[in-house]
Simulated scan of single mutants.
Amino acid sequence: MQDIKQIYYNDSGTSFYWRKENDILIDKVQLIFRETGFYFSQYELQQFRSCIEESYKLNNCCEDCELKNNCRKFLLKTPCSQIDLAVSMKELTAVKDLVEGTLFKINLDAYLFGEGMN
């Protein structure tokens, strides 16, 4: 796996930068969730986080349902207007962790290796 630089991973997916020759291409992040890959800019990744938050707000009506964590009835919009995902609440939580963990690590690295270097 010399062609990537991993950013973050969990049980449901991973995120990484592609490498080209000896350079790490940091303008876009490859995000793999389930069997789906997205190639997002940091701005699109932030939009995706907003889509996830919106899905939580829209789908909080299933608190009493026994199947709420496994039922794939929740529609998760993505920054790609042509693509929506059908997810369970469990998967929604997992992709939320994946996106937020990725953004946190990107921001942390930007600080540590940017303005944080005195």
Rank of each mutant, 00 (worst) to 15 (best):
C51P: 10
D97W: 09
G101C: 00
E63A: 09
A86C: 12
F33W: 08
K28I: 03
T102A: 09
K77M: 01
V87Q: 01
L76I: 03
L31W: 02
S50C: 11
K57C: 01
L58M: 14
E66S: 14
K5A: 03
G101M: 00
D3A: 12
G101A: 01
V99E: 01
N10F: 01
N60P: 04
R34H: 04
A110I: 00
V29Q: 01
D64G: 01
E54L: 02
G101P: 07
E66C: 12
Q30F: 11
C80H: 06
T78E: 03
K105P: 10
E21D: 14
D84E: 11
Y111F: 15
Q82H: 11
L67F: 14
R72Q: 09
F16P: 07
K57S: 06
T36E: 11
K105C: 12
K96H: 10
Q30R: 08
K68G: 02
T78K: 01
I106T: 04
Q46N: 14
F104I: 07
T36K: 13
Y39C: 05
P79D: 03
E100D: 14
E21V: 14
G37A: 07
Y56N: 10
V99F: 04
R34N: 08
D11C: 08
F74C: 00
Y56W: 13
N60I: 03
T102W: 01
F74A: 02
I26M: 08
T36S: 13
A86N: 12
I26Y: 05
D11Q: 13
V29Y: 01
Q46F: 12
N70F: 10
Y111T: 08
N107G: 15
